[in-house]
Design a protein around this nucleic acid. Structure first.
Lengths: 178, 178
DNA sequence: TAATCTGTTCAAGAATAATTGAACCTAAGG
DNA sequence: CCTTAGGTTCAATTATTCTTGAACAGATTA
């Protein structure tokens, strides 16, 4: 089979650089590493599926970063693998549906936090009932109720956001293996 | 004037420790340093206004951290200073209105990002019009439109979130000096 | 004015998080 | 089998962010 010659490694056009920068800031905003933003940005701009090696060349980051970044993005549902016939390389494309992106983020990044938060609230409640002496109990309970009401508000918001973005359903329990 | 004896420095009750932990994780979730979460958590639990020194003692963190943490929290509107008569010390109380907290966060943390994002979008648009060669122009424009539609969705969401939390108005331009 | 009390600032050090690159798999080709 | 291409892993390095504490500034009192 044909050996691929050196790839498409011409410099990134400036509008793409701008988009990449935008996604780098976005990634940072939601607590993801810069490299993840770069990779998504690059795929977002691309007209055709992009290979691993092209990402390394275009972004000038290490193979390790690309591998890990793609892993995160696949897991979030932000990129899809596009298998191309006579090529052993994986080709990647960006998921452009905001709905998908937000759902993936909610599932993988927010979900676990919300669950653990919920567990912690239960613990706190138990501690209040068992360890706070009566004179202070009422105040502690009041604060606890505030926390719970915040949690409830939070839970209302997520589905709402998904609805605005055109989404239908919410996250169940997760699936998708590495 | 009377010299204050050594403060209330008994160990933090375990339910408070739990709440502090919760806020530490919350702070981390929204990109704020641990110490800010600790301080807010401590104030949140307190029955009465708390002094600077009490925070240092209860949380076992440095005066510098407390000073900086309180600065952030004041700026966000998450704590208020409560002036108490015959005391030169500042006393702090936590703002318990979720609405206030979210508004402050939107104004100080999100706002600037959204504005700069908007500016970047304009730049990208200009670059596409001026530098992308015709065969690729249409694709680039299509991607740009996707970005803009995402931005618009984002802008719809914020007021909506504030509404769910009982808020009325949104952020204008900011005020409040250090 | 000196002395003390409160709190702030910021450079230096400590702690975290991200990136790199070489070793390492696995599948396919020869 | 042995080799190579394509990717992944992970320990070590590097970059970033947080915390600390000593020096500082203002404000009050003696």
């Amino acid at each position: 089979m044909k050996k691929m010659g050196p790839e498409n490694i011409k410099a990134m056009p400036s509008w793409e650089a701008g988009v990449v920068e935008l996604f780098v800031r976005g990634a940072n905003l939601v607590g993801l590493p810069r490299s993840v933003g770069e990779i998504y940005g690059c795929l977002f701009c691309a007209q055709e599926p992009v290979t691993f090696d092209t990402l390394v060349a275009r972004l000038k980051i290490s193979r390790g970063s690309v591998s890990q970044g793609l892993k995160v993005l696949r897991q979030l549902g932000a990129v899809k693998v596009h298998y191309i016939v006579g090529s052993r390389k994986d080709h990647y494309i960006a998921e452009l549906s905001m709905q998908e992106l937000v759902q993936g983020f909610a599932r993988d990044q927010l979900g676990p936090h919300l669950e653990s938060g919920s567990a912690r609230l239960k613990k706190i409640e138990a501690l209040i009932e068992s360890e706070v002496d009566p004179e202070k109990r009422s105040h502690a309970e009041q604060r606890f109720n505030t926390l719970r009401s915040w949690q409830q508000s939070g839970q209302k918001i997520l589905p709402l956001v998904l609805a605005v973005l055109g989404g239908r359903k919410f996250f169940s329990k997760r699936a998708q293996k590495d």
